[in-house]
């Protein structure tokens, strides 16, 4: 059966096409494109992706408006039912604002917009999204953000680390994130938010393919399930 993925587009999303191309490249099936104002998601989705960009112009706080858009109610319900959800960059911000992941993404400590490829260390190699990597493996993935500075209180950070929910850390902290955190999982492991862009590292023309294993592993696992 064809792999049924949805990519949500908010006003101001700008990585939705890259995300759709990455998913199609691996799955062989183009994802369904869903608009933020749609009342509900298509049925029987295998995978939902929230792309990067600047939804609603980052008004109020990055991701805050998108987190309250009509489609996100539907995304929350699917996530609670176990449908895998990947949020990248602005998608990560939306997931924290929607309460699907703990913490918040604040302005980079340097105040600068950062756009370059960074080294990430894979922390958790047991999740749907990360088991194509090995724990401790260093991968090169691009970042492009102004608000990527991950913040949570110490209690939450201890919990995330204790439960193995830190998916990736920056080898060199580029944005001030607490404990170098670049990506976190929810308790059930079906929701991943990360600031770096794996969809921008899936073909040689991108300068590297270290993001490919994330999509390959998740999609292969879901298709064979």
């Amino acid at each position: 059966m064809a792999f049924r993925a949805a990519v949500i587009t908010f006003p101001g999303s700008n990585c939705d096409r890259d995300m759709a191309v990455a998913i199609e490249r691996v799955s062989g099936t183009a994802p369904i494109r869903v608009w933020h104002g749609d009342a509900r998601l298509p049925e029987d989705l295998d995978f939902i992706a929230l792309p990067g960009g600047f939804s609603y112009g980052d008004y109020l706080r990055s991701g805050a408006m998108a987190a309250n858009s009509p489609i996100m109610q539907s995304v929350k319900r699917r996530a609670e039912r176990g449908v895998p959800v990947l949020g990248v960059c602005n998608g990560f911000q939306v997931l924290t604002e929607a309460g699907l992941l703990p913490g918040a993404l604040m302005r980079n400590a340097s105040q600068n917009f950062i756009c370059r490829t960074v080294a990430l260390k894979v922390e958790n190699d047991r999740s749907l999204f990360t088991s194509g990597y090995k724990a401790g493996q260093i991968i090169d993935i691009p970042v492009a953000h102004h608000d990527g500075n991950y913040f949570a209180d110490d209690e939450t950070l201890d919990m995330l680390e204790g439960e193995g929910r830190v998916a990736f850390r920056y080898v060199e902290n580029c944005n001030g994130s607490q404990r170098d955190i670049a990506g976190v999982l929810n308790a059930e492991g079906n929701v991943l938010g990360m600031m770096p862009h794996p969809e921008r590292a899936v073909e040689q023309a991108h300068g590297g393919t270290d993001g490919l294993a994330l999509f390959e592993n998740a999609i292969k696992t879901l298709v064979s399930a």
Binding site: L60, R61, A64, N68, T96, E97, P102, G103, A104, M106, F151, A152, D153
Partner: peptide, 9 residues
Amino acid sequence: EKLLAHTVI
């Protein structure tokens, strides 16, 4: 609580 402030931060 729901929108105007992000009470985590």
